[in-house]
Design a protein around this nucleic acid. Sequence first.
DNA 1: TAAAGTAGTAACCAAATGGTAACTAATATG
DNA 2: CATATTAGTTACCATTTGGTTACTACTTTA
Lengths: 122, 122
Amino acid sequence: MVTNMGRKLIENHNECPITHSMNIIGNKWTSIIVYVLANRKLRFGELAIRIDKISRKVLSNQLKEMELRGIVNRESYAETPPRVEYSLTKKGEDLLPILKQLCAWSKGIDLESGDESDCSTP
Amino acid sequence: MVTNMGRKLIENHNECPITHSMNIIGNKWTSIIVYVLANRKLRFGELAIRIDKISRKVLSNQLKEMELRGIVNRESYAETPPRVEYSLTKKGEDLLPILKQLCAWSKGIDLESGDESDCSTP
DNA sequence: TAAAGTAGTAACCAAATGGTAACTAATATG
DNA sequence: CATATTAGTTACCATTTGGTTACTACTTTA
């Protein structure tokens, strides 16, 4: 993955579409963030609470990357204490049904006994 | 990801379905292997040639992991020189349409000028 | 006898990714 | 004045993942 944070994302545009897809969603958090943000707007701190075990640094980096890619929307209000709200863009919403299929597909892999306990996402 | 090669795959079955999905396909090669194997049976060496830049070690590890997960099928013939053929299982085939959607979705992200040059996969 | 061809494996190393703890700025409240 | 609150950032470190090189075993062919 090309994750040169702070600067622009520089992608190799000759790469294969699968590699490209994986560069975008093939990491530990991106698709979880998309799921948590489904149908709602959340503040940075709320995201940090809802997504179990993510560090604020990584959350911050991911959100920045996703904003650059047009997956999430960032609205910042000049208040004190600061308020920043994140939501999905159209592109982000479009990913949801695909993620659902992926979850359905992966269900059952490596699982004899299906224990569907809770987590941050459906 | 829990990739303790050689032994069994031990997954945390309480994890969220998205994390689970990403543990399976969220790496550099798995979905590329699935794509390359679409509609055909290939030998180890053919896979190594068709998949640009993959090392034989990593290919070997991935295939082993995918076999354990029931995504690929391995048929080994006791000849000399040895012949081993890999193909997709039903589970593997089922992933293809999802990957296609993912590619369609990611097309256009980070791309102003759409250069659709070749790669190992459609 | 020597080389070629296949499917790996082992030891070792490099790069990418993720995590921790401490810190900042700005203002309101007690 | 001290403290709380929020959204981060910085410097540093740990883990995970991927890559390189050399090597094996077995048999056929030159």
